[in-house]
Design a binder for these strands. Structure first.
Lengths: 154, 154
DNA sequence: CCGAACAGTTGAGAAAGTCAATCATTCTCT
DNA sequence: AGAGAATGATTGACTTTCTCAACTGTTCGG
């Protein structure tokens, strides 16, 4: 009875105005993906935040902290503590930018690169679980559309 | 010079592994949409959280707090303070669920419905700005794909 | 009817986000 | 070249949001 009523209300919520709202769907999908990602990365002592920094700093890009902040949409001060933590674990280093002595270019150490290789597998597996309902082609078009929202500058 | 280096690094970040990661794109797109939404709703003294509650409680669904929590992926205690605040502003009421005396069904007052009508316009306009790059058809397919991530149960 | 499960509330503590101030460096402009 | 504005990083204070455990009253299952 209250079970039925609950089902009706849940049904009603799913049919509500928000369900057509891309921003709401974005928020909910993100919440789910974030939880899954954090769970998947926990075994390596990482969260999606620190994992992201590790990925970005083990590539060719050699980003400064400011660039990390912009890319991850974080306050510069948040990047400070993020890098502090990764550095204290020996996963990342602050190296002086030869062209601008104000800036630190953050670069993953060998240990960081080794860890990110493992973590990448866990992240991929976790994501797989979240996106299991979508075909490969669907994931591609989803990624393409999201990319246009996430990087409006082109 | 350092400007060029920065551009290279930003270029490099955009080409990095994360840019193909749906979860990352989800996070970034959501951050942008959330900021835009909060900015658009600020003139009505709302945030996307309180706006969402107001929308959900001014429909036919008559959700309980537990249902709101589940739908918005919030802790029940967060719904308490969210409803507290809206109720103190006279926008929403807690009414007893006749079929379950533990539950409160939350329902928007006339004032709440009036406000949500205004706020909906602002939200729509703010969202328009974020999604300007996407055609109507693209928004539709995006919404459909996101819906399958956001509501995995079907 | 009894014990388990559940809706809502409270409160505490951790994590995340926001913001202004500061220092060193670099850029702009004349 | 030099003065002043702007920038990258850092710190610290503060607010908001998240996460959990405990507790009350109610309902459910057997």
């Amino acid at each position: 009875m209250s079970k039925t009523a609950g089902a009706i209300a849940a049904e009603g919520l799913r049919a509500s105005a928000l369900t057509d709202d891309v921003s709401f769907l974005l928020a909910r999908a993100n919440a789910i993906a974030l939880a899954a990602g954090n769970a998947a990365l926990a075994e390596h002592g990482l969260k999606v935040r620190s994992y992201s920094v590790l990925v970005l700093t083990s590539g060719e890009a050699r980003p400064s902290q400011r660039e990390l902040a912009e890319f991850l949409r974080l306050d510069p001060s948040q990047v400070v503590s993020l890098v502090d933590e990764l550095q204290s674990r020996g996963l990342v280093e602050r190296t002086p930018d030869p062209t601008d002595r104000r800036a630190n270019v953050v670069v993953a150490t060998d240990a960081g690169r080794a860890l990110v290789a493992l973590a990448r597998e866990s992240a991929r597996a976790g994501e797989e679980r979240v996106h299991a309902h979508l075909s490969l082609a669907e994931r591609e078009t989803l990624a393409a559309l999201l990319r246009r929202l996430a990087f409006p500058g082109e």
